[in-house]
Each structure stands twice: as structure tokens, then as C-alpha cells.
């Protein structure tokens, strides 16, 4: 499959998944909605953004599988940089939480944290390899 087609297929799934995630986050963080809903329904509501996350990570996995080998190499490197940075920060922050009075960081921030580091790594690798448009 051509990288162009792979990217089109990625965007087709990524965009609706991202919208679902954002809508889910909005609903799950709106106090008015949370006050109206019965307790049981909140458990269902918080699954909505997770479905979005599943959709866009599946889209990313499929893109990595379908794109060309050079872009695949850069994507894998960016993902590894992202995981590495997140794990380092989580280890340091986790230990600080044990032994000092730093505030507890909600586990919710794992996903945005990973994508922040992944995005920075992707931008750097794209710039270094003159392929920025394929990484962002």
C-alpha cells in the first residue's frame, strides 16, 4: 500500500476517534451531567473516551503496519522515545510521591503525557530526517 493511502486510512479513523474522545472527556468532566446521571451511568460514561482512545491507537497501529519502511522506522522510534520519556517521568514522580510531599498526579495524565513526548520526538525525528509532514 502507498504511504499516501495509508495516511488517508489513518485519518479516516483517527478523526472520528479523536472527536469521540473529546466528546467523552467533555461529558465525563461536566459537573451538570455528572449530577443528573445515576451513579451506575457514570461508569458507562467514562468508557466513551476509552473507545476513542482504542480507535485512534488502532488507527496508529494500522498506519505503522501499512506505511513504507522508512516512515515506519521513524514512527517506531518516536513511540519508543515517547514511552521512554513517560516511564522516566513516572518513575521519578512516583518515587517523589512516596518520599516527599509532591502532589499526587492523576493517572488520567498518562495518555496526554505519552502523546506530548511522542509528539515532540516525532517533530524532532521529522525535522532531522526532512520528513516532518509524515510525522505530524
Amino acid at each position: 500500500m502507498s504511504p499516501k493511502l495509508a495516511r488517508q486510512r489513518y485519518m479516516k479513523l483517527f478523526i472520528p476517534s479523536m472527536i469521540l474522545y473529546l466528546v467523552g472527556i467533555f461529558l465525563a468532566s461536566t459537573e451538570l451531567i455528572l449530577n443528573i446521571l445515576p451513579k451506575g451511568a457514570i461508569y458507562g460514561l467514562v468508557v466513551i473516551p476509552a473507545i476513542g482512545v482504542f480507535g485512534w491507537i488502532y488507527a496508529q497501529m494500522r498506519f505503522v503496519r501499512e506505511t513504507d519502511e522508512f516512515i515506519r522506522k521513524m514512527q517506531i522510534e518516536a513511540i519508543l522515545y515517547g514511552v521512554c520519556a513517560l516511564m522516566c517521568v513516572a518513575t521519578v514522580w512516583g518515587l517523589l510521591e512516596f518520599y516527599t510531599t509532591v502532589p499526587k498526579l492523576p493517572i488520567f495524565f498518562v495518555l496526554p503525557g505519552f502523546y506530548l513526548f511522542y509528539g515532540l520526538a516525532g517533530a524532532y525525528l521529522g525535522w532531522k530526517n526532512k520528513a516532518l509532514c509524515n510525522m505530524l
Binding site: S2, T67, D68, E69, F70, N129, K130
Partner: peptide, 20 residues
């Protein structure tokens, strides 16, 4: 297009930044 890879991949191979 002929090789089914991106223009960036061709550039990376040509400049020796990537071995196919």
C-alpha cells in the same frame, strides 16, 4: 510512486540517511 514509498523515503535513501 513507482516504488510505493514516500518522497521522503527516496530522499533519505539517496542521501544515505536510510538503508533500504
Amino acid at each position: 510512486d513507482l516504488l510505493d514509498v514516500s518522497r521522503q523515503s527516496v530522499n533519505a535513501i539517496e542521501t544515505g540517511r536510510y538503508d533500504p
